[in-house]
Design a protein around this nucleic acid. Structure first.
Length: 226
DNA sequence: GCGACAG
DNA sequence: ATCTTGTCGC
């Protein structure tokens, strides 16, 4: 390492990228890739964050697996405190996402996060950061590839390899759509994460329902609350 | 050094 | 992510 150029202008005073990397190395050590989810995953939460002017709107929902219905919604508004910088997404979105999740009244077995988990240059993406804070099984789902190369497809799945290691999976949930990228956030194995993602994705739709719903509510909330 | 780069 | 209307197609 040694060099790191990052958009400097919008970074808050006192924030050192070097310290963020230190935190990420620590996060990477703390993440657990073993399954803490039971065989029956009945409820999943999903979080999404949208922005408007200098505000971030975090939305969390809980979805029932059998009916795909939304049984709880929580919305939180915070001030934006950090710019968007690839590989540092967690420092921008963890706080609003956390606040939204804390507002949920219903329980959930697993959490879906809109962004990568271990599929990150330091193996410490947004989903890992949030997963550790929430301390629940967490799955990262990104809509485009941040790093790595896609290996051989086996039906609808392909490993995402980075530095010789499979740290994510490309998943074609819908035949025509581009794949989504699944990776471990916390307390779950990669393969269980893929299975649960499948279980919560409605046929014909690209994203798992908790994330789709969280995003929908997030778009609505942005114009009603701001 | 160049280019790429989750949301 | 956000700024934005209609429009082509299943």
């Amino acid at each position: 390492m040694g060099w790191e150029r990052v958009r400097h202008s919008e970074i808050p005073k006192g924030f050192l990228v070097e310290r963020a990397r230190y935190a990420q190395r620590r996060i990477a050590e703390l993440v657990i890739e073993e399954d803490f989810v039971g065989t029956h995953v009945r409820r999943a939460a999903g979080v999404d964050v949208s922005f408007r002017e200098n505000y971030a709107i975090g939305v969390a929902v809980v979805v029932d697996r059998d009916t795909f219905s939304v049984i709880d919604v929580s919305i939180a508004k915070t001030e934006v405190r950090f710019p968007y910088i690839p590989t540092l997404l967690g420092f921008r979105e963890t706080y609003p996402a956390y606040k939204a999740l804390k507002g949920l009244r219903e329980e959930y077995d697993v959490l879906f996060v809109d962004g990568n988990g271990r599929l990150h240059p330091y193996r410490a993406g947004f989903a890992c950061q949030l997963g550790l804070v929430i301390d629940k099984p967490t799955i990262g789902v990104a809509k485009s590839l941040l790093i790595g190369e896609i290996g051989n497809w086996n039906n609808d799945v392909a490993p995402v390899i980075y530095q010789g290691e499979t740290i994510g999976v490309a998943l074609k949930t819908s035949p025509r759509a581009k794949p989504i990228y699944v990776s471990v956030g916390h307390k779950i194995s990669l393969w269980k994460a893929v299975q649960v993602t499948r279980d919560f994705t409605r046929t014909g739709l690209r994203e798992p329902e908790p994330l789709r719903q969280a995003h929908n509510y997030s778009v609505k909330a942005r114009r009603e609350i701001c």
